[in-house]
């Protein structure tokens, strides 16, 4: 288990080989698997069938987004990967010691200031106080919360809380990072800005990403692959390869190619919801 301090230059770089479907410029190359779901089904004890036979592989350095109707089991999939619920059947392959996540809500400890919250995971992993503080301050400024280190979560906006939560996870420099609608509560402009920041974090830290969102343009902008899920019980309906090279140019959003891809995903999602 590596516990290096972040930020750090991507140390897993190399020329990407072999895989035609991936866009150029991904921070990590190779075909190694970072996270894979094999025939996952999930039925809750109360009988709710949330997922049915979901298979999905995220290779190292890939950024995969999932879109799907509300209640289709996206959060459940992430929770299964993290180990919070046991799946009913199927196999998850992942190195959990290297797994980072942001939950759908920020889950900050209300009695700790932002700094204390960002330090929390490092504290639980036994980092020294000086190291904790140093890394936490770096992460806080990385997510744009400079000057808010001594604020209680109660006094932050929803988006700021989410960023604090993001900083908390980033502090462990995970090599696989799962995000559950981290920017759902933000306005379009702030969301786009944070998307740009996330892409640069992705380039810089070189993690593998699994990102859940309801925003199609966000999914297309961030990802090398977009997965569309069906209504509950969730199944994978379609997978779109997003060919645009990394790092992504903010202007990409205004290109016709981008719009075309978004509308394709949109049509697919519409079918998912209506059928």
């Amino acid at each position: 288990m590596t516990l290096q301090a972040v930020p750090q230059p991507p140390d897993r770089t190399g020329g990407r080989t072999g895989d035609a479907s991936s866009p150029a410029g991904l921070p990590i190359a190779g075909n190694d698997v970072a996270l894979s779901f094999e025939n996952i089904s999930m039925q809750f004890p109360d009988g709710t069938q949330a997922l049915e036979d979901v298979s999905l592989t995220i290779r190292k350095g890939e950024f995969v987004s999932i879109v799907g109707p509300s209640g289709c089991g996206k959060s459940t999939l992430l929770k299964i990967a993290s180990g919070l619920f046991p799946q009913t059947s199927g196999i998850v392959k992942v190195d959990r010691s290297q797994l980072g996540y942001t939950f759908q809500d920020a889950t900050l400890l209300p009695w700790r200031k932002v700094l204390g919250n960002v330090e929390l995971l490092m504290e639980l992993r036994g980092f020294s106080p000086e190291e904790r503080r140093r890394i936490a301050m770096e992460q806080i400024s990385l997510v744009g919360l400079d000057g808010f280190a001594e604020h209680y979560p109660k006094r932050l906006s929803g988006g700021m809380r989410m960023r604090a939560s993001l900083a908390r996870s980033l502090a462990l420099n995970p090599s696989v990072f799962m995000f559950d609608e981290p920017f759902g509560a933000l306005d379009e402009i702030t969301r786009e800005r944070l998307n740009d920041e996330l892409v640069s974090l992705f380039m810089r830290n070189g993690f593998s990403g699994l990102f859940i969102t309801h925003s199609i343009s966000e999914a297309v902008y961030l990802s090398s692959k977009v997965v569309v899920m069906s209504r509950r019980p969730g199944q994978i309906l379609e997978v779109f390869d997003i060919p645009f090279a990394y790092p992504r140019d903010p202007e990409l959003r205004y290109t016709p190619e981008f719009a075309t891809l978004c509308s394709e995903v949109s049509v697919s999602l519409r079918n998912a919801i209506e059928n």
Binding site: S82, G83, L84, Y101, F103, D105, T107, L109, L120, L121, L124, R125
Partner: peptide, 9 residues
Amino acid sequence: GIINLFRLQ
């Protein structure tokens, strides 16, 4: 959620 956070670590 907070309990889960601790459990996962």
